[in-house]
Amino acid sequence: MAEGFAQELLGSNWRVASAGVERHGLNPNAVKVMAEVGVDIADHHSKLIDLDYLNSSDLVVTLCGDARDKCPMTPVSVEKQHWPLPDPAGATGTEAEKLAVFRTVRDEIRERVLALREAD
Rank of each mutant, 00 (worst) to 15 (best):
M1Y: 07
A2R: 02
A2T: 02
E3I: 06
F5A: 03
F5S: 01
Q7S: 04
E8S: 14
E8F: 03
L10F: 05
G11T: 07
S12D: 15
S12K: 15
N13W: 07
R15G: 13
R15K: 14
R15Q: 14
R15C: 12
V16M: 07
A17K: 10
A17L: 12
A19I: 05
V21K: 04
N27W: 02
P28R: 06
N29S: 06
N29Q: 08
V33W: 02
M34P: 03
V37Y: 10
G38W: 12
V39L: 09
I41T: 04
I41L: 05
I41N: 04
A42T: 13
S46H: 01
L48G: 10
L48R: 07
L48K: 08
L51A: 08
L51W: 00
L51Q: 10
Y53T: 15
N55T: 06
S56A: 15
S57Q: 06
D58K: 08
L59A: 08
V60L: 11
V60D: 04
V60T: 03
V61H: 01
L63Q: 01
L63A: 05
L63M: 15
C64T: 02
G65H: 09
D66N: 15
D66I: 09
D66F: 11
A67K: 04
R68V: 00
R68P: 00
D69M: 11
P72V: 03
M73K: 14
M73Q: 14
P75I: 09
P75K: 15
P75S: 12
V76G: 12
V76K: 14
V76S: 14
S77P: 04
S77L: 03
V78I: 02
Q81N: 05
Q81T: 07
H82K: 06
W83K: 09
P84T: 02
P84F: 07
P84L: 08
P86W: 11
D87T: 03
P88W: 08
G90V: 09
A91T: 07
T94P: 01
E95L: 15
A96W: 04
A96N: 00
E97I: 14
K98A: 05
K98C: 11
K98I: 15
L99G: 00
V101H: 00
F102S: 04
F102C: 05
F102T: 02
R103N: 04
T104M: 15
T104K: 09
V105S: 02
V105C: 02
R106I: 08
R106T: 06
E108N: 08
E108Q: 13
R110T: 03
E111M: 15
R112A: 07
V113A: 07
L114G: 01
L114W: 00
L114T: 01
A115K: 12
L116C: 10
E118N: 11
A119E: 10
